[in-house]
Amino acid sequence: MSIPTLPPIPEEILTRLNAPGDWDEEFFDEYFDAVDRFRDSLGDPAVTLGLARRLWADPDEKMRALGFDLLAFKSPDVSWQLTPLVEAAEALDLDRVDENLRWSAAHALAAVDHERALVPLLRFARDPDPDVRRHVARGASPSGLMLLPEEAVTVLLDLMRDLNPGVRDWATFSLGVRSGNDTPEIRDALAAVLEDLEADTAGEAAVALALRHDPRVLPVLKEKLADLDVGNLYLEAAQELGDPQFLPLLRQLKDRGWGVETGDAFYLDSALEILSGSSTA
């Protein structure tokens, strides 16, 4: 059985990897666009995986991070990359490697969206870098699981209290959408962030409590839906709750042209349709 020839790393990727200073959003996007093009050019998963293995053995942590970046994507079949990815991430000494390598490893684990990547991803939950913790919050709720295991729930509850608003937002969403995970502790944690003033955390909590039909969301929705500046998450929460008492407030928003200029009016139309049906049922 022949060993596939491993191609060199394109210069456009090496140049960006070795660029001095912090990356801005545009530079970051350009880097991952280049990685995506390179991965697509490889074609054969065996070549991609062989290259990732070679990079993981490189003494340069930037190159080791690139090995994870090559596998940071979700596809219909991730079986060929899953075991090597998990083993490489688990082999990292998180106290010794730099934040860029930790970021890339956590990003790849979160991106594959698979339950087998969950346990190694949770290792990163207390990382000092909030961008790494954000990957944990985003990836700790893989879509293939009907219920989150207790370990994941515990981590997400902790991340809902994170100092970083983006981490709180993702953790609230990831746990909130799992309505099958429904305990007094989870509901209390969701209720506690209903007044969060940053990111979309409060709105995600409102949706989550509505999914669980927790009455603590009722006064919040009455207040928010009376304001023309209400966000679409509160409309989603009203729809999930299915209580026709919100119809007058929703119709008032419709009359005032909510969402027309922003293109978000379909959120309102959907809520009106669902709640109107509930009122005649």
Rank of each mutant, 00 (worst) to 15 (best):
residue 29 D to H: 08
residue 166 G to H: 14
residue 279 S to N: 10
residue 76 P to F: 03
residue 219 P to Q: 06
residue 212 R to H: 04
residue 242 G to V: 08
residue 50 G to P: 06
residue 163 L to C: 09
residue 50 G to N: 07
residue 34 A to H: 06
residue 94 L to D: 13
residue 32 F to K: 07
residue 274 I to C: 05
residue 121 L to D: 08
residue 189 A to R: 05
residue 53 R to N: 09
residue 152 A to L: 06
residue 280 T to W: 08
residue 192 A to P: 00
residue 82 L to W: 05
residue 45 P to W: 11
residue 30 E to V: 02
residue 246 F to S: 06
residue 32 F to P: 00
residue 189 A to F: 02
residue 226 A to H: 07
residue 197 L to K: 14
residue 153 V to P: 01
residue 20 P to V: 09
residue 50 G to I: 07
residue 1 M to Q: 13
residue 177 V to Q: 01
residue 280 T to Q: 14
residue 120 P to R: 09
residue 238 A to R: 05
residue 17 L to S: 07
residue 203 G to A: 13
residue 271 A to M: 04
residue 71 L to W: 04
residue 161 R to Y: 00
residue 248 P to I: 03
residue 127 D to T: 08
residue 83 T to R: 13
residue 225 L to A: 08
residue 224 K to P: 02
residue 7 P to E: 10
residue 80 W to Q: 07
residue 178 R to H: 15
residue 103 W to I: 06
residue 21 G to Y: 08
residue 81 Q to T: 06
residue 181 N to T: 07
residue 281 A to P: 09
residue 199 A to K: 15
residue 115 E to D: 13
residue 19 A to W: 06
residue 211 L to T: 02
residue 3 I to A: 13
residue 205 A to L: 00
residue 169 D to S: 15
residue 279 S to T: 11
residue 146 M to Y: 09
residue 123 R to T: 14
residue 231 G to R: 14
residue 156 L to E: 05
residue 275 L to Q: 03
residue 123 R to S: 14
residue 230 V to D: 03
residue 189 A to L: 03
residue 95 D to I: 06
residue 46 A to E: 15
residue 113 D to S: 10
residue 169 D to T: 08
residue 6 L to V: 15
residue 18 N to L: 14
residue 47 V to F: 06
residue 235 L to P: 09
residue 134 R to D: 14
residue 210 A to T: 01
